[in-house]
């Protein structure tokens, strides 16, 4: 039996009737039309469907929509703020970290969660952090570069914010 849930998706509260069997990814793609989140497998391996649920990278194919009642969900469509791309998005483009782009949303979301906890990761840490995201095009080389570069961008922007505060 369908039940009403309220989920904050990319900053907007959405109330929807969902069947208990509906997966979060189905809510996002089919009900809310947020097709940037992709389904690449059916066994929770590929990570293409990764979104942030309450700030944590989560495979949206392995969580029921009803489980996210009251939660905050961020998808690739919500990464840019006020028309400005997230550093991870910018870095993926500038480092050529995507080819076909199908796995990219999931990888970027995983990277966003990871960099929130590790501001200056080593390459080995980056590779470990994306072990749950498969990419068949890039050989990961440029994805690692992009995440490293995004980390630097974020650190610099954080430092310049601090510097601005100090000046004031």
């Amino acid at each position: 039996m369908a039940q009403a849930i309220t989920v904050t998706v990319n900053g907007t509260k959405r109330t929807k009737d969902v069947e208990p069997s509906q997966l979060l990814v189905e809510l996002l793609r089919d009900t809310l039309g947020l097709t940037g989140t992709h389904v690449g497998c059916d066994t929770s391996q590929c990570g293409a469907c990764t979104v942030l649920v309450d700030g944590r990278a989560t495979k949206s194919c392995t969580i029921l929509a009803v489980q996210t009642d009251g939660a905050e969900v961020v998808t690739v469509e919500g990464l840019a703020k006020n028309g400005e791309l997230h550093p991870v998005q910018r870095a993926f483009a500038s480092e050529h970290a995507l080819q076909c782009g199908f796995c990219t949303p999931g990888l970027m979301i995983t990277a966003v969660d990871f960099l929130a906890r590790n501001a200056s990761p080593s390459d080995a840490e980056i590779r470990h952090a994306i072990e749950g995201n498969l990419c068949r095009c890039t050989g990961y080389h440029n994805i690692v570069n992009a995440i490293r570069s995004a980390a630097a961008m974020m650190t610099m922007s954080a430092q310049s914010k601090v510097a601005a505060e100090v000046k004031r």
Partner: peptide, 21 residues
């Protein structure tokens, strides 16, 4: 040259076949 394909793919606005509803 930076790829022209990327802006839509990094924002989730690219249209893949399964996105056609």
């Amino acid at each position: 040259l930076q790829r022209k394909e990327d802006p839509r793919l990094i924002t989730g606005s690219g249209l893949f076949t399964d996105d056609v509803t």
